[in-house]
Amino acid sequence: MNNMNKEDTQKASIDLALWMGDNALILGHRLAELCGHGPILEQDIALTNIALDLVGQARMWLTLAGDLEGKGRTEDDFAYLRSDKEFTNIKLVELPNQDWGYVIARQFIFDAHHLVILEQLCTSSEKAIADIAQKAIKEVQYHLRFSSEWIIRLGDGTEFSRKRMQSAFDKLAPYIKALTLDDPLTILAKEAGIGIDNKDVEEKAWKTFDAILSEATLELESPEYFHKGGKQGLHTEHMGFIIAEMQSVVRAMPNNKW
């Protein structure tokens, strides 16, 4: 901690804020695609609530990234004027929506990690990070409760729904590990007391998985091989389309106020 210079810790803080912001933004964007198309009106509303929370959190994280960077970049500069390669989100959040069960499974995997991450960040030595985490954590507690309930309901529902859920988890399993991968900046952030202890996040998230999935009569194992890359800007083939769509109006008519 002592031999870290301010520049390094600042870099680590920006990196963290962008990672949190990008994950929330891209997952929020994916969920928002379902708005108006949900299977049941009540669930349409609930999922949109989560999308709203996530995009709201993304705004706080990206604004913070801009403040820490000190070059005058705003939340919209980050969202609308970066290329897909500059986005640091994990691949899990960019995967296209499939059926409702798959969407819920993806959400549950994210929520189980997200909650532990925010618990840790509530005590970050970087006050601005702790402040956002404290606001976001109340929302994410609800997200995890919602997704857990649906995992149990669909896993322990009909034979058809159990198969669907199991297949969703099988498809998503290789994307889980990337939520807790270390790199030099995350290690630095952890050592500086700013960031996340990935090992602890992983352990606690898997405890949640075990508890909920056993109740749901489903199985999930950490696969031997997993997909890395999102954080370093290497994404799935889907990411380019998300960015192209999201930024289309702003890119077509640049330098305007909206």
Partner: peptide, 17 residues
Amino acid sequence: SRAPSLRRKVALLAKVQ
């Protein structure tokens, strides 16, 4: 998905909701 600012995106989502 194409709202041209995050503020507009959130407002539109909330509205449709």
